[in-house]
Amino acid sequence: MSETRVRQRSNPEWLSQLRADGKPEQAEAIEDLRQYLLRAVLYFFSQNPGDLRSLARAEIEQVAQDLAQDALLTILKNLDEFRGESKFTTWAYRFAINMSLVEARRQRWKNLSLDRIVENSELPDFQFEDKAAPDPDRSAQQQEIWETVREVIQTELTERQRAILTAIVFDDVPVDVITKEFRMNRNAVYKMVHDARAKLKRRLEDRGFDVAEILNLFGNAPAPRMA
């Protein structure tokens, strides 16, 4: 893909030209912004290829074109939100990268099957050790809470609740993938996750754990290791 040079503009120039309805400078500014966003998306994908390795180069470029266009439309609708606290292109860049992150996640999970979601619903057996500043009591409390979380999820949630909760919360599977595989609407998925979390919270409280205490224990905790 040949690279098109984007003309430099100040923040006021970007805003005034993008708002110049029907004038040649608006069309030029829109195309320059689209090219800038396209380069940002392609660069992001080149640095983070993992989730798109199954796609051919032409497919990646098409995905990038679509994302750049979507980001452009979103930016044009939100020009009034720009506060001038950074360069306009820096502000616009965030839209492109956020959309790229969402697309990368979608690509990662797009071929995920219902069977695989259910099979992966068992939580790992983490072991907590505070190596930076050894604190056996803290590590023991973290371990006890994690074991309780695992027990409640494995024994007190339905198979469907367990699969959906672990997929969304622990495996970062997009909600759209869950709705497709489980044939549920988004509200039903959100309610199921909410109900599962509420049950988990109640069981932890029944066993004497306080939510504030849990957040304090895990707030600055080092990453656990697999058993």
Rank of each mutant, 00 (worst) to 15 (best):
P136C: 10
L79Y: 06
R203T: 12
K23H: 04
N187W: 08
F45D: 12
P12G: 09
P222H: 08
L72D: 07
I30P: 00
N111K: 13
Q142D: 02
R57K: 09
Q17M: 11
K199T: 12
L38G: 14
A92V: 02
F82T: 03
F126H: 06
N98K: 05
D172T: 12
T89H: 04
D115S: 10
A133D: 11
V63R: 13
E103I: 03
A20F: 05
F88W: 07
T90N: 06
P124K: 10
R225M: 12
T158L: 02
L18Y: 11
S121K: 09
E156T: 05
R83V: 04
Q143A: 12
N48C: 01
A133L: 04
E129C: 02
D130P: 01
I30F: 01
R162S: 11
K199S: 04
S54H: 15
R116N: 09
R202K: 14
M226A: 10
L217G: 01
L114C: 00
Y93M: 09
A71L: 00
W146K: 05
S139W: 01
W109M: 03
I30Y: 04
N11F: 03
L67H: 06
Q35T: 15
R39H: 11
V6F: 06
P222A: 09
N11R: 04
L123C: 09
R39M: 08
D21P: 01
A223S: 14
D70K: 07
K23T: 07
Q141Y: 08
I117S: 03
R39I: 02
Q47S: 10
L101N: 06
K77Q: 12
N48F: 05
A196K: 02
L33T: 05
S86H: 06
V175L: 15
L38V: 05
R138G: 03
D195T: 13
D210E: 14
K110L: 15
L42S: 05
T158D: 00
K199V: 03
F218A: 09
K201E: 13
Q8P: 06
N185T: 03
N48T: 05
L55A: 05
F218D: 10
E59K: 10
R5V: 13
E31N: 15
P124F: 11
F128T: 04
L165P: 05
D206W: 13
G208V: 04
E119N: 09
S16D: 15
A58Y: 04
I145Y: 04
L73F: 04
K191S: 11
E3R: 13
R197I: 13
F82R: 00
D135M: 07
A27H: 11
L114H: 12
R5K: 15
G22D: 11
G219H: 12
I97V: 15
I214T: 06
K199D: 07
S139K: 02
L123A: 01
K23A: 13
S10H: 06
I164C: 00
V149T: 10
E31P: 00
R39V: 00
A227I: 08
L15V: 13
F170G: 03
A20H: 07
E3T: 10
R183L: 09
Q8N: 12
V173Q: 03
L157K: 08
I30H: 08
I117K: 02
E28K: 14
P134N: 12
L157H: 08
L112K: 13
F95L: 10
T166E: 01
L67F: 05
R34W: 09
F45P: 08
E122C: 10
